[in-house]
Amino acid sequence: MTSIPDVHTPAKAPVSPARQATGLLAYLFAGLYFGMVLVKSEAASWYRIQEMFRFESFHMFGLIGSAVVTGLISTALLRRFGHTRSGEEVAVKPKDRGWVRYVLGGLTFGLGWGLAGVCPGPIFVLIGAGVWPMLITLLFALLGTYLYGLLQQRLPH
């Protein structure tokens, strides 16, 4: 078993409360905008998700494809210019080799998505839109996250 080398990290410069508040506001507004986009694009619609799983509509595949392209571009930009607002370096670790963890993770994610009719992102959007049964989905998503934390050492990574 190989050990991870100890890497010295430079001391962080203190962030002023005003800069921290503006950063939090920026994230809040970005999240609100993203939530509105999810609702308006019908990405949070159970009916659209069912259409996708039945191969009846291209709508969700187009949304997912555009998300993949956005993720690829964002990751490339992070690797090239990777630093935070405070100047800390952001390093994108390459994915581990092997397929078992990705297949198991994808099956778990897909099973939850199919049963709940929603992936984790829109849960909060739907609760904000007044779809109160999503509180049950949120509860089980949090329970699943907690259980993963307990079992993490025993799972294939």
Rank of each mutant, 00 (worst) to 15 (best):
M1D: 03
I4E: 11
P5L: 13
D6V: 15
K12S: 07
V15E: 05
S16P: 01
A18E: 11
A18I: 13
L24E: 13
L25Q: 09
F29N: 06
F29P: 10
G31N: 02
L32P: 00
L32N: 00
F34P: 04
V37H: 09
L38C: 09
L38Q: 09
V39P: 00
S41F: 00
A44F: 02
W46G: 01
W46K: 02
Q50F: 09
R54K: 15
R54N: 12
F55P: 00
H59F: 01
M60G: 06
M60V: 11
V68Q: 02
V69S: 05
T70N: 02
G71L: 02
L72E: 15
S74D: 11
T75H: 01
A76T: 09
R80N: 10
R80P: 03
G82C: 00
S86I: 04
E88Q: 13
V90P: 00
R97F: 08
W99V: 12
W99I: 12
R101C: 05
L104W: 08
L104D: 13
G105P: 08
L107N: 08
T108D: 02
L111W: 14
L115M: 15
C119Q: 01
V125F: 07
V131T: 08
L135V: 12
L142G: 01
L142T: 00
Y148T: 00
Y148R: 03
G149D: 10
Q153N: 04
L155E: 07
H157W: 15
